[in-house]
Design a protein around this nucleic acid. Structure first.
Lengths: 121, 121
DNA sequence: CTGAATCCTGACCGATACTG
DNA sequence: CAGTATCGGTCAGGATTCAG
């Protein structure tokens, strides 16, 4: 089976899905969130996001860059210096991130205080 | 899906992540989108979403119901009749969905037509 | 009509080690 | 400091079949 996996043509043309594809995965929204206040260096990012591995940080950063949401700035000095910043396109995502943040917080207040549902296991 | 979310464990308590967990997956946002105009029956939903399998529709519906975003109404008649509708909580998600929809559409206009990251592997 | 059960594949993700 | 390489585990999701 060849790759007919064209998200735009396969299932419906829902832009919501496009958005989900882009900030899908476990770390991307958090990374974006960390970059909202200005450029951040690789290791700083790693420290800001407890639990992320170098591999996942690198991969996520690469994808965000490929999707045009962030900018990667390399300064060729003896101790390598790379920082990441929101691009204008990434910046346009902020209201969305904000909305998701608000709703996530609201959702937690609305669920029964007896922990959520799925940890019954 | 959302497994144990041990606050002690790792990833941060970011509400954005909560939101992503809930409407993560490939079909949930589309389903929610389809329910925005009123209750829809199982098979109708299946027809509205080309490409979805019965399994995924059932599973997604169950999770959305468990998360309190939709309501499931069973009418016990000879040909089983089940319809799904947005709950108030699900309704509160609409602005978020709308924001994501807007941004996804905007993103497509801003990106070079040769998007290829999905199947560049 | 609605949905459960089973099997299978690949994507996503984590740990660790190595490099310029 | 900022990555890359390799290995492997877990799980979402797809195909198919069975059932009420």
């Amino acid at each position: 089976m060849a790759k007919d996996l064209d998200p735009d043509s396969m299932h419906c043309n829902c832009p919501v899905t496009t958005t989900l594809e882009i900030l899908g995965g476990r770390w991307k929204p958090i990374i974006l969130y960390c970059l909202q206040d200005g450029p951040v260096r690789f290791n700083a990012l790693k420290r800001m996001i407890p639990g992320i591995t170098q591999r996942m940080l690198t991969l996520s950063l690469r994808e965000l860059e490929t999707d045009g949401l962030i900018l990667r700035h390399v300064r060729e000095v003896v101790p390598p210096h790379v920082d990441y910043a929101m691009s204008p396109l990434g910046d346009s995502l902020r209201p969305v991130l904000h909305a998701m943040n608000e709703w996530g917080a609201y959702y937690r207040t609305q669920t029964t205080p007896q922990k959520a549902r799925s940890d019954a296991a």
